[in-house]
Simulated scan of single mutants.
Amino acid sequence: MKSPLPVNPEHIAILRLSALGDVCNLVPTVRALQRQWPNARITWIIGKGEYSLLAGLSGVEFIVYDKATGLAGMRALWRELSATRFDVLLHMQQAIRASILSLGLKAEVRIGYDKARAKDAQHWFTQYQLAPHPRAHVLESFMDFARLLGVEDDTLEWNMPVPGIAYEEALSLSGEAPYLVINPCSSARIGNKRNWSVEGYASVVEHAWIHHGLKSVLTGGGNPREREMGDQIEALCQPGSVINAIGGTSLKGVLALIDQARAVIAPDTGPVHMANAMRTPTLGLYASNDPNRTGPYLWRDFVVNAYPDAVRAYLHKRVEEVSWGQRVRHPDAMELISAEHVIAKLDSLLADSVPQPPDHSSETGSAHES
């Protein structure tokens, strides 16, 4: 017989290791849990890179698991938590690695996804499953965990921690003039087909510079593909219109850059969700993934959405005929996005959103609150 759901949990565990965008989308669920049970301890088991983004999140104890450490790292984590028993474990990672890790955690109740949303047989590792929520956005799927526990106030709140040194880093890169952040590349995982064209980005940079007086700051990781793409974009742009910071920032520095930016442009990758979390106007570029599921939640009206066209062109189906979350892994999918469409969306986004002064009200730096 399974234990009942806790009415007043004293210690809540969250298991979500990756990725950057996903952990940003999970923060409002953490805030909802904190509002409901302000005295509860919350322990979040998280990935190494993701921790570097969220370090300092108020009211949260982090336990870092580096997936590169494999089973040895899991055993070390189990030893660290051997004397800890959670009232409830929210198993939010749909991966067999995370499910194996969960086996070594002591919890009265384990909650996971419903069968329609679960992957890698995750429902075998949990006692309770979420109620069905067809065609839910990732952020809503996370919030469903709080709702199952009885949380009714699902107001979106992030209050992301950004230390002062990160703003100093951002200022040293961007200068005082207003700017866009463009993060041109998604992650370098095999089969990831989310990158738009160099020429397209260069056209947007030129338009922002000439028509809006905005320089563009390019951000991204330091892998060779991202550096090469940044160099190619910069080579096509007018001098002074672009700052190539790819590979030259910390994650907190990117968060600070995003916080101070006039707008952010990116495909479906971490910075598009970081921008959403900071409430910075966000223009997402989507063709490989459905923005209704993974788009920047607050700015979905400004997404350039070529996903239906990609499904039709490369899967030979209508969106309604493919499974929720189906990806279009064709190398030409993102080419269905035109520079003219992106520029029109950017003009609309800038006209619709009024610049806000920076808010330095949090104890660790600046934060936007709902």
Rank of each mutant, 00 (worst) to 15 (best):
K2G: 07
S3H: 10
P4G: 07
L5W: 07
L5M: 13
L5P: 00
L5E: 13
L5V: 00
P6V: 00
P6N: 01
N8S: 14
N8G: 09
H11D: 05
I12T: 02
S18N: 11
C24K: 05
N25F: 05
N25G: 04
V30D: 00
A32T: 01
W37N: 04
N39S: 13
A40L: 12
A40C: 13
R41I: 02
I45T: 01
I45Y: 10
G47Y: 07
Y51D: 10
L53C: 00
L54R: 05
L57W: 00
S58C: 04
L71A: 12
L71H: 08
A72S: 14
A72I: 09
R75A: 07
L81Y: 04
L89F: 03
L90G: 06
Q94A: 13
L103I: 03
E108Y: 08
Y113V: 02
K115D: 14
D120R: 06
W124A: 06
Q127H: 15
Y128V: 01
Y128A: 08
L130A: 06
P134Y: 06
V138S: 05
E140A: 15
F142V: 04
F142T: 05
F142R: 02
V151P: 13
E152V: 00
T155L: 10
L156Q: 12
E157A: 14
E157D: 14
W158A: 03
M160E: 00
M160T: 12
P161F: 08
E168P: 00
E169T: 02
A170C: 09
L173R: 11
L180W: 04
S186T: 10
I190C: 04
K193F: 07
K193D: 08
R194A: 05
E199R: 11
Y201P: 03
Y201C: 15
S203H: 13
V204Y: 03
A208P: 00
A208C: 11
W209H: 15
G213P: 12
T219D: 04
G220Q: 07
R225F: 08
E226A: 12
E226K: 13
E234Q: 14
L236P: 03
Q238H: 12
G248M: 13
T249Q: 05
T249M: 11
L251Q: 06
A256C: 10
I258S: 02
Q260T: 04
I265D: 05
P267L: 08
V272W: 02
H273D: 09
M274T: 06
A277G: 11
T282A: 11
N289T: 15
G295N: 05
L298I: 02
L298Q: 12
L298T: 00
F302E: 07
A306S: 14
A306C: 12
A306V: 07
Y307R: 08
Y307C: 02
P308H: 02
D309P: 02
A310F: 04
Y314W: 07
Y314M: 10
E320N: 05
E321M: 05
G325F: 10
M334G: 01
L336C: 03
I337W: 09
S338M: 07
A339V: 06
E340L: 08
H341N: 13
V342T: 11
I343F: 10
A344R: 13
L346K: 04
D347C: 03
A351H: 13
P358R: 14
S361I: 00
S362T: 14
S362Y: 10
E363R: 15
T364E: 07
G365A: 08
S366E: 14
A367N: 03
A367I: 09
E369T: 14
